[in-house]
């Protein structure tokens, strides 16, 4: 197993534990506690904040092409509301634009 595979295997174990753990904890909460508006409000806000917290530093470190791809992805989604079309448009910018520029 290569060094990257060893690191990735550990990352997979951490990711799988986190994802399944959250599913299980949610199910157990649903069984015993129901859903209060206060809990729902925090649970709604945390994932979006976590995603933004990962995106923020990545965008700061991104090059112009990556920023353009992100802008196209977001723009297409905001206009069309179509997930797959938006991702395709952003990915197209990412992989096709360098060839067009050259």
């Amino acid at each position: 197993m290569s060094p990257i595979d060893e690191r990735f295997a550990l990352a997979v174990a951490l990711m799988a534990g986190a994802a399944y753990g959250c599913r299980l904890v949610g199910y157990l909460i649903g069984r015993v506690a129901g859903q209060s508006p206060a809990v729902r409000r925090v649970l709604d806000a945390l994932p979006a904040s976590a995603m933004a917290a990962v995106i923020g530093p990545a965008l700061v470190g991104a090059d112009l092409l990556e920023l353009a791809a992100a802008a196209v992805t977001a723009g297409v989604f905001l206009v069309s509301g179509r997930f797959l079309a938006s991702l395709s448009a952003g990915a197209a910018v990412l992989v096709l634009a360098p060839g067009l520029i050259a």
Partner: peptide
Amino acid sequence: VQDPLPAAAIAISSVLISTRLVLMGAS
């Protein structure tokens, strides 16, 4: 997935990004 692996960042971020699964699991 870098060298060294930021295991704590991966674990914490994975949990935080997965928190909506908690809500769906409850639902």
